Computed example of a mutant assay.
Amino acid sequence: MGLDFTALDFFQLAMLEVVLAGALAGVVGVLVVLRERAFFTMSLTHATFPGAVAAAILGVSIPLGAAIAAVALIGVAVGIGRIRSQGPAVASGVMLTAGFALGAFLQSVTPLAIDVESFLVGQVLAVTGSDIALTALVLTAALAVWALAGRHLIFSSVDEAGYRRAGLAPWLPETLALAVIAGTVVAIMPVVGAILGVALIVAPAAAARLLVRDWRWMLVLAPAIGVASGVLGLWASRWLDVAAGGAIALVAAAAYGLAWLVGSLRARPAGAARVASAEQRDPAAHATIEKRHP
């Protein structure tokens, strides 16, 4: 028996959505960080904006419009990236600026009154059961991708040349990764919008990477940080009467800053232990170092 969303009020719906979106962003964010696709993800979040605006103008599903735009612009980016004199960074830059400009243009020429801000920074307090179902579906798909193809994704991420030498095709895991990232960007748009989506996707995974090295532990820690960012950000928006999308993105960024601080403090004792060990092996050399650098 499915969950009866009509029994939940708007804040309970929003809380359920941020939990699912935080978990999804964390799971897929590990893929983004390990494959170094943060800039591409930022470009893709902007590229979904015109699709969302066009869908609102036509009166069709906004996630569907965003998904179509994402697929189309991924094709454009892949085409630009294959030009010998260009590259992935150039393709992502073109996609970012062109996508956002096209969205702004469509919004300016339409006679309809469109709430563009909800597309840009999200409107999680207005989510529906359909939004929650979509996020849950994409989360299930992302977990299935990791379960079935996780080793291929990791192998091709850390050693693409070795992946080729093993007789495997790198474009297959790359296409799979891009599809999952695109689906995530579309699914979390109601939570953090087209502009702030990259913060929820990248920051929790980047924070997890500072704290753990094993990708399996990253897959546990990153979703936990993503969920915590969503929940704390939503409560902060309620207490402080601020935009929920911005609050969630700020909490995610703060989590990254905290992880960096913890990682730095943890590295200092290790550095001090190495110095102490060197002093025991060669006290004279250590004394010379101290004399030169009091």
Rank of each mutant, 00 (worst) to 15 (best):
A142K: 08
W171V: 11
A21G: 07
L221H: 02
W217K: 14
V30A: 08
A144S: 13
T41M: 07
G87H: 03
L120H: 06
A267F: 06
G183H: 06
V231Y: 01
A72E: 05
P111T: 14
M1Y: 04
L64W: 12
V212I: 03
F10E: 07
S237T: 04
A141Y: 11
V202M: 03
V180N: 11
A255Y: 04
S43Q: 03
T45M: 15
A52K: 04
L221R: 04
T6H: 06
W260D: 07
A113Q: 15
L44F: 04
D241P: 10
A259S: 09
F100P: 07
R238M: 08
S264I: 11
W217C: 13
V220Y: 06
S156P: 06
A247R: 01
H152I: 05
F100K: 03
R292M: 14
S229Y: 01
A56R: 08
W146G: 11
I132H: 01
F105L: 15
A272E: 15
L168P: 09
A208R: 11
V60P: 09
H46F: 10
T135A: 14
R164T: 12
A177K: 07
A194E: 02
E36R: 15
T6C: 09
V192M: 10
G246F: 00
A54N: 02
A182G: 05
G22Q: 05
R82G: 14
P50M: 02
T135V: 15
V158H: 08
G246M: 01
A236P: 06
L58V: 05
G246W: 00
A194H: 05
V227A: 10
A67I: 08
R213Q: 14
D131S: 11
R292H: 12
A252T: 03
G162K: 08
L3I: 14
I289L: 15
L125S: 11
A67W: 05
I225H: 08
L232T: 12
Y256H: 11
V185Q: 09
L143N: 11
L234Y: 00
A104E: 12
L8V: 00
V116W: 05
T140E: 10
V262K: 12
A253S: 10
W239N: 09
E174Y: 13
S237D: 02
Q12C: 03
L210M: 15
T48I: 15
L221D: 01
A89H: 11
A161Y: 10
L168D: 04
L73F: 12
R213D: 14
A149D: 08
F5D: 02
A199E: 08
V251A: 05
P223S: 02
A101E: 02
P190D: 05
A276W: 00
D4L: 04
A7G: 06
A249T: 01
A104L: 15
A47P: 07
V90C: 11
